[in-house]
């Protein structure tokens, strides 16, 4: 390493950190909101008969994307282990 600080890595951590670390909670919150509105409830009033299935579907897409991200995170933590035991080197793992 030439410089005192690995600026490239730092910027990558910051940019992807914002996308994943702030974006995913936002996406999850969007899911919570669309689910609540889709079920016909907002602001404490239950508007019976005003269900909106499309929004409910959007909610589940949001939750699914967040789940995929978490599963990816777990696979990332386990990538060397998986590679070592199965030979499948994923997510940047390398044979050692």
């Amino acid at each position: 390493m030439d410089g005192w600080l690995n600026v490239g890595a730092l910027v990558k951590v910051l940019v992807f950190g914002i996308i994943a670390g702030a974006g995913l909670p936002a996406l999850f919150a969007l899911g919570v909101r669309t689910q609540a509105v889709g079920a016909g409830t907002i602001g404490g009033q239950h508007l019976a008969g005003d269900r909106r299935p499309l929004l409910t579907a959007v909610a589940y897409v949001c939750f699914a994307l967040v789940t995929v991200a978490i599963v990816t995170g777990v696979l990332f933590v386990a990538r060397d282990f998986i590679g070592h035991h199965t030979g499948w080197y994923i997510l940047g793992a390398e044979a050692k």
Binding site: G17, G21, G73, V77
Partner: peptide, 9 residues
């Protein structure tokens, strides 16, 4: 979420 993302990244 922030912690997890930054630690892994």
């Amino acid at each position: 979420s922030s912690s997890a993302a930054i630690i892994l990244l």
